[in-house]
Design a protein around this nucleic acid. Structure first.
Lengths: 217, 217
DNA sequence: TTTTATTTTTAGATATGTCTAAAAATTATT
DNA sequence: AATAATTTTTAGACATATCTAAAAATAAAA
């Protein structure tokens, strides 16, 4: 498996959870940031390897084998991200590019040992679930700050939206993983809320609140 | 810089410390396990990038720039090996192939943070010095078991020979990093010695003793 | 110092992964 | 249903990195 092939599998996997079964060449091209003709070439190759089902002009989707491999790459990506944030003290928004490289390192033993070293985490630093060695995603009941009643103490465990702009916003407000958060009041009109984060008061929009994943203390 | 280019630089660097200035195409080919014609192709490319000095039929050697890059790759390799052994609990002989992959990960910040996380180690688990961020190798006074007087307590900090056969030998005898070693007696005829390792007596050859790097307690 | 042997380079081929531009198929519109 | 617009595929090219086989240069031997 080459890195390019792994990247295609990962992209197709992600797009399938978003758009369902069959994916057009153009959608994959947009995701990978490449040309449609390149996607066609790769789909033919992945099809020969029985990793995707591909019919000309009809789009493609993953086979069981392709799905398993995609999940394996995703598992590696998320374990490495967890390592970078929890052990090496990276910020959330700095780890993605490095994890994109690390996810292609080939060694099952390494991943098993890294997993153990991290304490078999169920979620990465963005709060996204990490599939186990068998490819099964853990059940996680997600509470978002938007659904938490006032005056309940919470801890930030992840974000739903992990885009750069959002993570930069959080950094600029000193909102970090494990921050303690309490909702002080909610504005019924626009769901904006006054919250106390790390003992400081702050006004956040409803859009921010629905993206903050928390657990009640 | 591609992985292939980095591997060539590393190989040329290692060969230069062994054979001195100019290296023949065939020697490099043997080291990389490739064909002479491939080496010629790559030397031309590296020469264009000012990483090696190469003259047709006259061999090649690294420029300052090539040397610096080679040392950087070596630093990454040794830091990752240290991580694998010290943090992930790998054995010495299991880490080389994985470190060969990890050494190509591109991120200066990552290496700085990993270095700090490991406590700025001066030697990798084989006892080989790790160059610092400026590419300077630390001065290490190496004591080998062959030079240690009897009844002096030592700790194993590295090996001079890190071949698979030797590391497997050590594993089979339960000789590991940080083992305590005491020389009980030396046979003047062949320098073989009776030693106490982890409170067990063991007879080792002189050849083994000169490859065990220790520090006196 | 020729001849022979070895080393090194070149020329041309292959595999991967990408691209552009044109052709073919599909989908949308009138 | 025929035409137009869009999407997808093909054909051919390019870059990287490798290889084999032949040619050229260097080194060794007679």
């Amino acid at each position: 498996m080459s890195q390019a092939e792994e990247n295609y599998l990962k992209a197709i996997y992600t797009l399938q959870t978003e758009f369902g079964k069959s994916l057009s060449t153009n959608i994959i091209a947009a995701k990978i940031d490449t040309k449609a003709s390149s996607v066609t070439d790769m789909l033919k190759k992945l099809s020969l390897k029985k990793l995707v089902i591909y019919k000309k002009y009809q789009g493609a989707h993953l086979t069981k084998k392709g799905n398993d491999l995609a999940i394996k790459v995703i598992r590696k990506h998320r374990l490495w991200e967890t390592f970078l944030v929890n052990k090496l003290d990276f910020n959330w928004n700095e780890v993605h590019d490095i994890a994109e490289q690390l996810e292609h390192i080939k060694s099952d033993v390494l991943m098993a040992k890294l997993d153990a070293f991290l304490g078999h985490p169920k979620q990465d630093p963005h709060g996204t679930p990490i599939p186990n060695r068998e490819g099964v995603f853990p059940e996680i009941e997600n509470d978002y700050l938007s659904n938490i009643p006032t005056d309940t103490l919470c801890i930030l465990v992840g974000v739903k939206n992990s885009s750069d702009v959002f993570l930069n916003y959080l950094n600029s407000k000193n909102i970090a993983l494990n921050s303690t958060i309490k909702v002080l009041s909610v504005e019924p009109f626009d769901k904006s809320m006054l919250v106390e984060i790390n003992n400081k008061q702050l006004l956040i929009t409803g859009e921010v609140a629905i993206n903050l994943q928390v657990i009640k203390q």
